[in-house]
Simulated assay, not measured.
Amino acid sequence: MRQSSPLPARTDLDRRQELRDQRAAEIEQLLRLGAEAGTQRRASYQDRAVELGLPMAHTLAARYRQRGVDGEDLEQVACVGLVKAVRGYRPGPETDFRSYAVPTIRGELRKHFRDRAWMVRPPRRIQDLQTAINAVEGELAARLQRWPTTDDLAEAIGVPAEEILDAQRAQGCFRPVSLDARLRSAPDLTLENVISGDTDTYALVEHVETLRPVVDKLPERDRLILRRRFVDHRTQAEIGAEIGVSQMQVSRLLRQIMLVLRSALTA
């Protein structure tokens, strides 16, 4: 008698997805019951649906973290979007609340970035492009199994790569970095150390001339890393994908290169 192969073990991811599906089904049932109930009873159903939908709202808010906006603010905005979705949902034969709620919550988050989060407001074209980048970046990363490059984003959105770079350079407009902030690529340096002032032109020229022979003597890969990071404004992830190393390794290499250059300036 042929034995059947054992079923694969359920993973934590499977269990989390099952829990999300169960929660979505319960919310759907509550909202369908509420649609047929009186005003007071409907409000009770909707309040319970909001409670069950909070994990979904928090998950969507988490995808917009590390972009210059406080995490608690993002969660509050996502919850507002959830409440709007619950209040505005109209159950039908072929409707699904989750499919309605996700774009509603995302829309509230993107609106918050567009209208409230800018400390230095760039042109509307740049704002809209950043919104488009935020919308496709995570999906591209999941599909490509790596962080998308500038060219990947440009192709997905349908704009030239130069416009993607412009939008990425303006990311700090949400929350400008302090001049005392340490550089990731060179923790011994602050942002103030690498920004030239109006009165130090001669010193800047002297530094460039001092570093030129030092850079020329660097290994070819180190020179490429320098060019990609400080001339082409590529991210560490993009550089790592090009030279075949991890983002962490690129950060370590940049730190070592910057130490060599700084030693040449202080010698």
Rank of each mutant, 00 (worst) to 15 (best):
R169H: 08
L30G: 05
Q40N: 07
L54N: 02
P213H: 13
G138I: 01
Y100R: 10
G172F: 01
E26G: 03
R175E: 11
D232A: 09
L13D: 14
I243D: 11
R116T: 09
R212C: 06
G53V: 04
I157K: 06
E18I: 00
S5L: 11
E155L: 08
E209Q: 15
C173T: 07
K111F: 03
P6K: 04
V177N: 00
R223L: 04
E155K: 08
A61S: 09
A37S: 15
G34Q: 03
Q46H: 03
S5G: 01
W147Q: 13
Q247T: 14
E155C: 02
R229F: 09
Y100D: 10
A78K: 08
L224N: 03
E242K: 07
G81C: 11
M56T: 14
V208D: 11
I257S: 10
R124G: 02
L259P: 00
A117N: 03
D200W: 03
A85K: 01
P8D: 01
D152N: 11
V120P: 00
H58D: 15
P176D: 02
L13T: 12
Q127K: 07
L74Y: 02
A57H: 08
R2Y: 08
T210E: 08
R252E: 14
G158W: 03
L224G: 01
E26L: 12
V214F: 11
S263Q: 15
G172T: 04
T266D: 14
Q22M: 11
G92Q: 09
E139M: 06
Q171M: 14
T131Y: 00
E220V: 10
K217L: 13
V208E: 14
R114S: 15
E162S: 15
L60I: 09
G158N: 06
Q145I: 02
Y100I: 09
D47E: 13
E75R: 15
Q256F: 05
E26T: 04
L153R: 06
A25M: 09
R223A: 03
D198P: 02
I133E: 08
